[in-house]
């Protein structure tokens, strides 16, 4: 391994996350590329603008976006057509909202452990709780850590531009 490579990586791998033991982000703290011309006085303070990705995701490698269908979680402020941010690296604890796979379908519900077993509970009185009595019945796929909503839901529109 070349010396300069190691140096660069030491600078690169600095941000750690205490509970998972691994670095959460690859933060480039300092970039030394030299360009011709007058140096900007802000060079040493260079920083990226705030980024919603880093706000929502602690573990990009384990983070997945899922589109919500229906209103079963409406009282937890998760609405039809919202996106939920799912972190697969987290193990669900009672009370978490989770993405679960039950009876051949993905579902978003609140995971609740009770003395008689595990439940997936909706946040809408119109829907029933699901009791998961064995691992074959269902499993937690990941923990929902956030919800993203756009007021102007344009994701269905065709994004194709044409130039000729």
């Amino acid at each position: 391994m070349k010396e300069n490579k190691t140096m660069r990586e030491t600078i690169y791998w600095t941000v750690y996350n205490n509970d998972s033991g691994g670095p959460t982000q690859q933060l480039l703290l300092f970039s030394s590329s030299v360009r011709a011309g007058f140096p900007s006085p802000a060079t040493d303070y260079a920083s990226d603008p705030v980024d919603l990705n880093t706000y929502f995701t602690r573990n990009p490698a384990a983070t997945f976006l899922v589109r919500v269908e229906g209103d079963s979680m409406i009282n937890a402020h998760i609405d039809n057509d919202d996106l939920v941010v799912v972190d697969k690296s987290l193990r669900a604890v009672s009370g978490n909202i989770v993405l679960a796979f039950v009876a051949g379908e993905f579902t978003i519900k609140r995971f609740v452990l009770k003395p008689d077993g595990a439940y997936l509970e909706p946040e809408n009185p119109k829907y029933e709780s699901i009791k998961v009595s064995s691992p074959e019945m269902g499993q937690v796929w990941g923990v929902v850590v956030g919800v993203v909503r756009k007021f102007d839901k344009d994701h269905k529109h065709d994004n194709t531009f044409r130039i000729s």
Binding site: F64, L65, V66, R67, V68, E69, G70, F106, I108
Partner: peptide, 13 residues
């Protein structure tokens, strides 16, 4: 393309 295209994300009820 569950992870690279908004219109093809996983869906859940």
């Amino acid at each position: 393309c569950y992870t690279t295209r908004f219109e093809q994300l996983l869906r859940a009820r």
